[in-house]
Design a protein around this nucleic acid. Structure first.
Length: 229
DNA sequence: CGATGGATGAACT
DNA sequence: GTTCATCCATCGT
């Protein structure tokens, strides 16, 4: 597990994120969120996302304009937007259009490697195997050790210079994994108090790492057809 | 599965 | 000081 060939984990280019928010949310399913911390590599496959649109979306933090708290949302696509909620953290990726405050919330990961350090970060006993490690936006932040320090961080390779280890502490990679279109479901977003009728949550159907509302979903089909590639 | 109550950071008055 | 928030562990059915 320690001899990971990072060539398979090269950061996605900024152009990946410079796309309409919903397409990014869908295209992120199957990608791998990677974290380097304490000399260890943590990774989890993205299996649940939500889109927060720059307009006509009252649930988006950008809806009430730019504030110090949400300023990272208004930065270039491909940067992290990390914000606190109910004493925990949520990790978003900024999408296009730049400067408008659109983002994708990463809601759940399937652990790929680094399970032991993830358990430590989550304060879970090493012997326990049935506790959700990275299911839910705040749990995955805890497992991946993401907090306000990653707010505004660039996730592409240029940010290597930000880190003495020669690589960004947090990025998203494409290892070639693809989910079939029929394996992707959609639903309203979880926990939002406005814009609740919008189907802006996507997830891998019946995946054990997906959090919440598994029952209320429908196949991501022609009605929501969006170019994934 | 749904309801409940706890937890904390930041924007308000 | 008060309120609200892209939550979640826990408990009851």
């Amino acid at each position: 597990m320690n001899d990971i060939d990072e060539r398979w984990l090269a950061p996605l280019e900024p152009s990946f994120y410079d796309v309409e928010t919903r397409r990014v949310a869908i295209a992120l399913l199957g990608k791998v969120l990677v974290r380097r911390i304490d000399g260890q590599l943590l990774a989890g496959r993205i299996v649940e996302t939500e889109a927060y649109l720059h307009r006509a979306d009252p649930a988006c933090h950008a809806a009430r304009g730019i504030k110090p708290k949400n300023a990272a949302m208004f930065g270039p696509p491909g940067r992290a937007y990390v914000y606190p909620i109910h004493a925990k953290w949520c990790f978003n990726v900024v999408t296009m259009p730049e400067g408008q405050g659109a983002a994708v919330l990463i809601r759940s990961l399937e652990p790929v490697f680094g399970v032991e350090p993830m358990k430590r970060h989550r304060n879970i006993d090493e012997s326990k195997n049935d506790v959700p490690l990275t299911s839910g936006p705040s749990r995955l932040c805890q497992a991946m050790a993401i907090d306000r320090r990653q707010n505004g961080l660039a996730l592409w390779s240029e940010s290597h210079e930000d880190n003495v280890a020669g690589s960004p502490p947090l990025w998203i990679a494409d290892d070639g994994h693809r989910y079939r279109r029929r394996a992707i479901g959609c639903s309203p977003r979880i926990g939002v108090t406005s814009g609740e009728s919008l189907l802006l949550r996507w997830f891998v159907v019946d995946h054990p790492s997906v959090s919440g509302l598994k029952r209320w979903h429908r196949e991501y089909g022609p009605a929501e057809r969006t170019q994934v590639d």
